Computed example of a mutant assay.
Amino acid sequence: MRSNPATQIETEQPTPQRGNWLNWLKFDARAYTMIGALIAIWVLFSLLHERFLSPTNLSNLFLQMSVTSILAIGMVLVIVAGHIDLSVGSLVGFIGGVIAMLNVWYDWPALPVIIVAIAIGAGIGVLQGWIIAYKAVPAFIVTLGGMLVFRGLLFGTTGSVTVAPLSPGLKSIGQSYTTDLIGWILGIIGLFIAAALVFRKRASRKQYGFAVEPMPLSILRVITIGVLVLGFVAVMNSYKGIPVPFLMVVVLALIFTFITKNTTFGRQVYAIGGNPEAARLSGINIKRRVMLVFVLCNTLAAIAALVLTARLNAATMTAGQNYELDAIAACVIGGTSLIGGAGSIMGALIGALVMSSLDNGMSLMNMESFWQYIVKGSILVLAVYVDIYTRNRKNKAA
């Protein structure tokens, strides 16, 4: 007896699987170790100083981490592509000086100043990226030279004096907060977006016959996100509201997470860092992509300069000093491999929060500044060691 072809086709289609709870509860040990370390740091400093977890200090903490986070977002792309940028700290200082001069000395309004600052950052990114990508000069050398050049330009253009104060419109970029109502609206919108993404991913896996996590686990994910988001809003609203610079970080993180995960450009950047020769053979225009990575990184440095200068209400000669090291450390602590080809925006943000928490906590404890350098340097070395150790274990297992 001959079987019905239509029946055969139906029986051969994949059927969705629920998946085992244990399989879905498996996690990235590196990522959760980092989150555990952050929680341990917060618990330690809260025990040592009662003000650490106060709404006032937490608001200051998220405000302080904004500049490092913006720089780290751009640095992730550079490091993933297999390069490094040592100039972003000095670039923040130089562009901050230009911002203050235009606004204070020449009375430029906020909008033209913002446009010029971003244009300068993008232009410098084009120049550095072109030298690195098309002239094959190592990024370490180009950006090390840029670090010195931009710091010198800051001293030369400002006459080595502090330029202040900024106009209220420009200052508000770094010092303003959302109202309570806007904070709750943003929190609810964020919760709905997160829930939509969770259930959309679930529906997509089910449609294509892949294993689907149990519904209670999906609901638990949404509840956890809701508690974190709405709890954050409640804590921030109990002080002044959500800092606008931190909202900028969230928006930029979402944009660049989408770029890295859902665009051809993002996938090509990871391919270039993971295996440049294979990327070249697959037809990727490596030079153009590398130059664009530096354009994005230096444009984000210009945005960081806007935030820092507005928050300080001045351009100072030490602005941005060592910020490139904090950005690199945030990326590495967050799981970005210095070898290239691996890293995430979210990991870099957690790394930036770790660095800022250490700075903030040790400042509250009135610890001398040299201890901050010792602790952050030790954590950076430990993070690189863990990355190399993890990679070696994976290679041996393969």
Rank of each mutant, 00 (worst) to 15 (best):
D326R: 07
N298M: 11
N313A: 11
L292H: 08
L292A: 13
F294D: 09
A301R: 03
T309F: 01
R311L: 08
E324Y: 04
L308R: 10
A319L: 15
N298R: 03
N298L: 11
V307I: 15
V293Y: 12
V295R: 09
Y323W: 04
A315T: 06
A310K: 06
A304F: 07
N298G: 09
L300Q: 04
Q321C: 00
V307F: 01
C297V: 14
Q321E: 13
A310S: 15
G320D: 02
A302C: 06
F294A: 09
A301L: 06
F294L: 05
N322H: 07
A315P: 07
N298I: 05
A315D: 01
L312F: 08
A319M: 15
I303F: 11
I303R: 01
A302N: 05
I303M: 12
V293I: 11
T318C: 03
Q321K: 13
N298K: 09
T299M: 14
C297H: 08
L306K: 01
D326P: 03
T316M: 11
L308K: 04
A314H: 00
V293L: 02
A304V: 08
A310R: 08
A314M: 02
L306T: 08
D326H: 08
C297P: 14
N322Y: 12
A310P: 06
M317V: 13
A310L: 01
A310H: 08
A327L: 00
A319C: 03
A305P: 04
A327Q: 02
L325K: 00
A302V: 11
L306P: 12
Y323Q: 09
L292R: 10
F294M: 10
G320Q: 07
A315G: 15
Q321I: 04
N313I: 05
A304Q: 09
N298Q: 12
T316N: 09
R311I: 06
N322R: 12
R311A: 12
N313D: 15
L308F: 11
A304Y: 02
A315M: 04
R311G: 13
D326M: 01
A301E: 08
N313K: 10
V295F: 09
R311K: 12
A302K: 04
T318R: 14
V307C: 03
L312M: 15
N313W: 12
L296Q: 01
A315V: 05
F294H: 06
V307Q: 01
L308C: 01
T318I: 10
L300I: 11
A314N: 00
N322M: 10
R311Y: 04
I303T: 10
L325A: 12
V295N: 05
A327N: 06
D326S: 04
C297M: 08
V293G: 11
D326T: 00
G320W: 09
L308D: 15
Y323M: 14
T309Y: 02
A314P: 04
D326W: 02
T309K: 00
R311M: 11
M317T: 14
T299E: 04
L292Y: 13
T316P: 00
A301N: 09
M317E: 13
R311V: 13
T309L: 00
M317W: 00
N313C: 08
L296E: 02
